[in-house]
């Protein structure tokens, strides 16, 4: 399932080494450094803040959330927020 597919929705998943991309569309299974987050306090509470490294585990179909590994914590983030989190592959 890693690094391939997917349907339309907000955007096709793509791998973009070193490029600034939104978390929703980047490939699954890779680690990313967070560059920019939208103003949602709970994100930083859960460790998703600039300079943090997250692993994108899965993206759920039909506009579902993305599942992230943040340190030893698993956090699911809805599509609308994930597509406003800018990350760079590490």
């Amino acid at each position: 399932m890693k690094g391939r597919r997917r349907h339309g929705g907000h955007g096709r998943e793509h791998c973009s080494c070193g490029q600034l991309s939104n978390l929703y569309t980047v490939c699954e299974g890779k680690c990313y450094e967070v560059e920019q987050v939208p103003p949602a306090p709970l994100l930083s509470c859960l460790g998703i803040c600039p300079k943090s490294v997250v692993q994108k585990k899965y993206r759920y179909s039909l506009g579902g959330p993305v599942l992230l590994q943040v340190g030893s914590r698993e956090v699911a983030v809805g599509k609308d927020i994930a597509s406003r989190i800018l990350v760079r592959e590490v």
């Binding site: 949602a40 709970l42 994100l43 599942l67 914590r73 698993e74 956090v75 983030v77 927020i81």
Partner: peptide, 8 residues
């Protein structure tokens, strides 16, 4: 409605 943010 705010999008989902949840710890698993």
């Amino acid at each position: 409605i705010d999008p989902l943010i949840i710890e698993v």
